[in-house]
């Protein structure tokens, strides 16, 4: 066990962690931030995506100690300062971009990383970028629509799903 410190959602936090502790387990078990979900634990589903120093990574496939001293953003850090939903989160609600919601934290984190580097993505770019995030409920259409809407683009003509 060794003490591990990182900046998570703007707060400097520490907890003990073994060498083998995954970042996902450290966030959930060590720091109590259970918004990051573990779906497959094999790097396929993307429910565990968080940002490490601004880059989206699958936290189930990164050792917690690799993130020592890093700046982490999880789904708990995505809301506005007053607690209201961010534009991207609100778009997921407005466009029914979730049903059971299990994949949503990873979807939001992956989509946020896309919009940070490509503020006006095309539908194809959104779908390509979300390749590593699996949703078993929605068929993806409304997730894609939500991301496009969050980017400020008109989705009224996007006939990809009934709402």
């Amino acid at each position: 066990m060794a003490k591990l410190t990182m900046t998570v959602n703007g707060r400097t936090l520490s907890a003990d962690a073994e060498g083998r502790t995954l970042l996902s387990d450290f966030l959930r078990g060590g720091l109590g931030l259970t918004g990051t979900h573990v779906g497959c634990d094999t790097s396929q589903c993307g429910a565990c995506v968080v940002h490490v120093d601004g880059q989206a990574v699958k936290s189930c496939s990164m050792l917690a100690h690799e993130a020592a001293g890093s700046t982490i953003t999880t789904i708990e850090g995505m809301a506005n300062a007053d607690g209201s939903l961010s534009t991207l989160q609100q778009a997921f609600q407005d466009h029914h971009g979730l049903q059971c919601g299990f994949c949503t934290p990873g979807m939001v984190m992956s989509a946020a990383a896309l919009l940070a580097e490509n503020p006006k993505p095309t539908e194809a770019e959104v779908r390509h970028h979300l390749e590593g995030n699996i949703c078993r409920c929605t068929g993806y259409h409304n997730i894609v629509k939500a991301v496009l809407a969050a980017s400020g683009q008109d989705v009224s003509g996007v006939g990809i799903a009934a709402e």
């Binding site: 989206a56 699958k58 992956s110 896309l114 590593g132």
Partner: peptide, 9 residues
């Protein structure tokens, strides 16, 4: 290769 999150690691 892989997906965006995999490519970041």
């Amino acid at each position: 290769i892989g997906d965006p999150a995999v490519r970041n690691r």
